[in-house]
């Protein structure tokens, strides 16, 4: 996975663990967490494939734009690889 990533801006139905407020936002990989069963399958008792999970760090400026309280504060969230699009750094 690249250092810089963008969260895919898709809106599939179902049990998704990617918060809507981060979709389409660009961040950096803070750390790699290993593989975990895909919650989008697990929630429906389907065979859940292991998927790579990452902690991604976003600046508040990236998430909230001019409305950010302090643009340099940050937010980290756990995002599965299939929600991340690698970017050129």
């Amino acid at each position: 996975m690249a250092d810089r990533v963008r969260v895919r801006a898709m809106m599939p139905p179902g049990h998704v663990r990617t918060p809507a407020y981060l979709r389409g936002k660009t961040g950096i990989i803070e750390r790699s967490l290993g593989d975990y069963p895909n919650p989008e399958q697990l929630a429906y008792r389907q065979r859940a494939e292991p998927r790579a999970l990452y902690r991604v760090r976003f600046s508040m400026a990236e998430i909230w734009g001019a409305a950010a309280e302090n643009p340099d504060d940050t937010l980290d969230a756990e995002i599965f690889a299939h929600w991340l699009e690698p970017l050129e750094s």
Binding site: R17, Y36, P39, L53, A77, E78, I79, F80
Partner: peptide, 8 residues
């Protein structure tokens, strides 16, 4: 640094 526990 806000940490959103979104997954595991």
């Amino acid at each position: 640094r806000v940490h959103d526990s979104t997954a595991d």
